[in-house]
C-alpha cells in the first residue's frame, strides 16, 4: 500500500461519516460509534487510491457558478418546451464542434457536464475520441462534439459565454492534475 497522507484520510473518513449520519438518521451512541469505526476503516482501506488533496476554494467557486447554470437550465427548458408543443415541430438538429482553450481536465469535465445538463444541448464526444466520418476534421486538443436541437439552444456555446464563465471559475488556480 502506498504511503497515505493523513489529511486526506481524515477528510475521507469525515465525509463517509457525514453520509452515514445522513442515511441512518439516528443519533444513538451505538449508531454513531459503529459509523465512526466503519467509515474510518473504509477510508483507511481505500486510501491507497486517488491520493489527491481536495481544493475547497475551487469547490466554493463551482458552487457559486451553479445559480447561473440553473438560470440557463430554466431558460432553455422553456425554449425546448415551446419547440415540442409547437404543432409544426420546428426543430433543426445539428452537430457542432466547440473548441475550448480551458486546458484542464476538470474544467473540460465541468463544461461537458453543464452542456449535457442544459436541455437542448448534449455533449456527444470529447477530443481525442473516434470522430465519425460525418465530421472528420482534425481534432484539436480540447474539442467537444455537441448535438444541439436548434440554433437558439446552441447560442451560448457558439458565442463562447459558457466557456468564459468556466474559465472565470478556474482562474488563478494552480493546476494539480
Amino acid at each position: 500500500m502506498r504511503p497515505v497522507s493523513s489529511e486526506f484520510l481524515v477528510l475521507k473518513a469525515t465525509a463517509l461519516f457525514v453520509l452515514w449520519v445522513l442515511l441512518s438518521g439516528s443519533f444513538d451512541w451505538i449508531h454513531l460509534v459503529l459509523g465512526g469505526v466503519l467509515s474510518f476503516t473504509v477510508a483507511w482501506l481505500n486510501s491507497g487510491h486517488s491520493p489527491f488533496v481536495p481544493n475547497f476554494r475551487l469547490w466554493g467557486k463551482i458552487f457559486l457558478y451553479l445559480p447561473w447554470l440553473f438560470l440557463k437550465i430554466v431558460q432553455s427548458s422553456l425554449h425546448l418546451s415551446k419547440l415540442i408543443l409547437n404543432p409544426a415541430l420546428p426543430i433543426d438538429p445539428r452537430l457542432l464542434r466547440v473548441e475550448t482553450n480551458l486546458g484542464r481536465r476538470a474544467a473540460v469535465v465541468l463544461m461537458g457536464n453543464s452542456i449535457t445538463l442544459t436541455p437542448g444541448t448534449i455533449t456527444a464526444e470529447i477530443d481525442h475520441d473516434v470522430v465519425p466520418e460525418a465530421l472528420a476534421a482534425e481534432a484539436d486538443p480540447d474539442a467537444l462534439l455537441v448535438h444541439a436541437i436548434d440554433e437558439t439552444s446552441a447560442g451560448d456555446l457558439t458565442s463562447g459565454r459558457l466557456e468564459a464563465k468556466i474559465a472565470e471559475v478556474f482562474k488563478n488556480e494552480e493546476r494539480r492534475w
Binding site: L80, I84, L117, T118, H147, I149
Partner: peptide, 26 residues
C-alpha cells in the same frame, strides 16, 4: 408531460435525448 410528449413525437435518438434531459433536470 412535455417531456413525455417529446419522447413520442421527436424523430430520432439524439432529439429524444433532449426531451429526456428536460425531465431529468428541471
Amino acid at each position: 408531460i412535455v417531456a413525455a410528449i417529446g419522447v413520442i413525437r421527436l424523430p430520432d435518438v439524439f432529439s429524444r435525448a433532449h426531451a429526456v434531459s428536460l425531465t431529468d433536470s428541471l
